[in-house]
């Protein structure tokens, strides 16, 4: 009976002007697309393992990873805390030093000439090679991984922010100067807001790199955190645990990135990349 009623309902809906079915609409939802793609990748992973007969000590099956995740979830979350904290601390340091550094470099040709080439040069030093040094200097505490996160996150902030500050239109500066604005006012009303989109672009790169930095720090000298977990599971060939740790790590990166994205939307609603939402919102 109910089937019949449903059928009639559906028939009545049919002559409405093309309203896509729920499934189709879900498929078109933007937030869902990466998850669909992820699901496809997991299926591909599973199929590959079966087709090529890859033994679980080389690549574990997705099912095992998921089971491990479920079983060790509290432990994983507990280990995620120190990694996340180190990432955020390193990132905040990178922003706190990187943005003023960019202001100095963009504001003074002398400082730019002295500092910028060295800064670029320093990027060619593999920071992973320096990380053990931090352990030698600062021991096995939180400091080495915070510093390592800071080192990886610093450069992208500086480069983007310098580009942002330097691309200010001279005409806009003239506009402010014609109103007798002082240097500070020109900076606050023109240069800083103009540089904000570039700064945020740099911060987004920086936060993902800061996660890498924190994990590298944990690799070389730590007894807690996702990096430590990774290291330990490789040592004991617990590949499902290792893959599960990788999943947690990506989650940390994605969530931090997403938080930054929300902050960006709130703080520069005028910017081109946010306009779509703004139009819908108003």
């Amino acid at each position: 009976m109910t089937g019949d009623a449903d059928g009639r309902l559906a028939a009545r809906h049919d002559d409405r002007p093309k309203r896509p079915a729920l499934v189709v609409r879900l498929l078109q939802a933007n937030w869902l697309k990466p998850f669909l793609f992820l699901a496809m990748l997991v299926v591909l992973w599973d199929v590959t393992i079966r087709v090529f007969n890859i033994p679980p000590y080389q690549i574990p099956a997705p099912k095992d990873v998921i089971l491990t995740l479920a079983r060790e979830w509290p432990e994983m979350l507990a280990q995620a805390v120190p990694t996340t904290v180190a990432t955020i601390e390193g990132f905040l340091l990178a922003a706190a030093f990187g943005i003023p550094m960019a202001m100095l470099i963009a504001g003074s040709r002398t400082i730019e000439a002295y500092v910028y080439p060295l800064l670029v040069f320093s990027q060619s030093i593999p920071k992973i090679a320096i990380a053990p040094l931090f352990v030698v200097w600062f021991g096995f505490g939180a400091l080495p991984k915070v510093l390592s996160a800071f080192l990886l996150g610093f450069f992208p902030v500086v480069v983007s922010a310098v580009q942002g500050f330097k691309s200010v239109e001279p005409d806009m500066v003239d506009l402010a100067k014609a109103m007798e604005a002082n240097r500070y006012q020109v900076f606050r009303m023109i240069a800083l807001p103009h540089a904000m989109p570039a700064i945020f672009a740099g911060l987004k790169v920086s936060i993902t790199l800061a996660v890498v930095g924190a994990v590298v720090g944990e690799f070389v000298g730590s007894n807690s955190g996702i990096g430590f977990l990774l290291q330990r599971s490789i040592g004991t060939f617990e590949l499902p645990t290792m893959f599960a740790a990788l999943v947690i790590l990506s989650l940390i990166g994605v969530i931090l990135f997403w938080i930054l994205d929300v902050i960006e939307r709130l703080s520069i609603p005028w910017h081109a990349s946010q306009r779509q939402d703004l139009v819908i919102g108003s």
Partner: peptide, 19 residues
């Protein structure tokens, strides 16, 4: 240097996009 009692309209509108 710029004089306070002057108002200027530049050739392009030069409105600040964040305001």
């Amino acid at each position: 240097r710029p004089h306070g009692g002057v108002g200027i309209v530049f050739q392009s509108a030069l409105l600040l996009p964040w305001r």
